[in-house]
Amino acid sequence: MCSYKKYVLLALGVTLALLQGVAQADSYVDVLDLPARASALAVRSPLLDTARAGERLVAVGQRGHILYSDDSGKHWQQAAVPVSSDLTAVNFPSATQGWAVGNDGVVLHSSDAGATWSKQLDGRQIGALLVQHYAELASADPANEQWAQLVGDGQRLVEEGADKPLLGVWFANDKLGYVVGVFNLILRTEDGGKHWTPFQDRTDNPQSLHLNAIASTGDALYIAGEQGLLLKWDESRQRFTALQTPYQGSFFGVIGKPGEVLAYGLRGHVLRSVDGGNHWSELNTGLPVSITAATLDSKGDYRLFTQAGHMLVEQAGSAQLQSVPQLGQSPVAGAALAADGSLVLVGSRGVRALRVE
């Protein structure tokens, strides 16, 4: 199962696209070549992720919509975006440099804190990139059957076209970063996105399960995937190694601080580790609803949100989650701490700010 939260929230956009398809058939332009349309309703349209860019907030969502706010979410402006693909995740390692990813294998880059964006990569290129990379490895090491298999995987991507979503993005700095997506799709760059290296051979993921998110806890880098897949970057081995967890359902995200990590996902499951992922304990959420977003508040406490809009709080060191009632509850796909200490939430109903005590 792919990242449930993102596809539930994308369903509305797919339906609208199908309804409009017949009328637009004669003038079809690929969404990868069609700039996002400016809309006064973008702030209320489905949004799937949000992040801080210095003091600025940036949110991404359907039809290539990217919004930014310089007043902690009170007012928003729409960014100039060269594609209309649905965007699923955004990350800023610095105040000005940021990356966003989404459907059709699209990777976007901004160097002005999210006001304007350029396309670095899309699904029409990824398959050929895999074929070339793994063909070179196969030529140098013909006895290794893995390379031939990965060449075949790349060739299938070429034949199937640009239809494979990227679901997560994380950059350590302005140069080093990763994008992840369906069927173990993972690419790494060391030059800010000018060049990308396939990393399918660097994951302990033999079933090619979907990679739903990638995040750092400050002292470790994790990937959350489907069917209980949780990976951690091993610097000495230069690969993402699988961690054993007591839950076999999908994880939708990871959040943490040095010395602690939470993995959250399907049906309200939240796991906690304080030893780098070697051992896990399950936190009781009291909810059968999927956890779809998380952030740290101004006190350093965890705030977790569900696809139905519930908010759970774990105070630092308590190892307990408490549900906090709120007005205007609505589905949450992404959350970020604003400069004024409030929380900004995005989801199927757009963006809203939440004051916290």
Rank of each mutant, 00 (worst) to 15 (best):
C2E: 13
V8L: 15
L18D: 13
L32S: 06
A36W: 01
S39R: 13
S45K: 14
P46M: 04
L47E: 03
L48T: 03
D49R: 01
T50H: 02
E55P: 09
V60G: 04
V60I: 08
I66C: 07
S72T: 06
W76H: 12
Q78S: 11
A79H: 07
T88R: 09
G102P: 07
Q120D: 10
G123H: 11
Q125E: 15
N144M: 05
W147V: 04
D153P: 00
D153G: 05
E159M: 12
E159T: 15
E159W: 09
E159N: 12
E160Y: 08
D163V: 15
F171R: 08
D174W: 07
F183R: 14
L185E: 05
G193S: 07
P198H: 08
P198T: 12
F199R: 08
P206A: 04
I214N: 01
G218N: 05
A220K: 02
L221H: 00
A224N: 01
L231F: 03
W233V: 02
S236M: 00
F240H: 01
L243G: 02
Q244H: 11
T245L: 11
V254C: 00
K257L: 08
E260M: 04
V261H: 01
A263Q: 02
H269S: 11
V270H: 01
L271M: 11
G276I: 01
N278Q: 15
V289A: 11
V289E: 15
I291E: 02
D297L: 02
K299V: 12
G300T: 04
D301L: 02
Y302G: 00
R303K: 10
Q307A: 12
A316N: 06
S318K: 08
S318W: 04
Q320M: 10
Q322H: 06
Q326V: 07
V332A: 03
G334M: 03
G334L: 03
A336E: 08
A336K: 03
A339S: 13
L343P: 01
L345C: 07
L345P: 05
L345W: 03
G347Y: 03
G347M: 06
R349E: 11
R352N: 05
V356T: 06
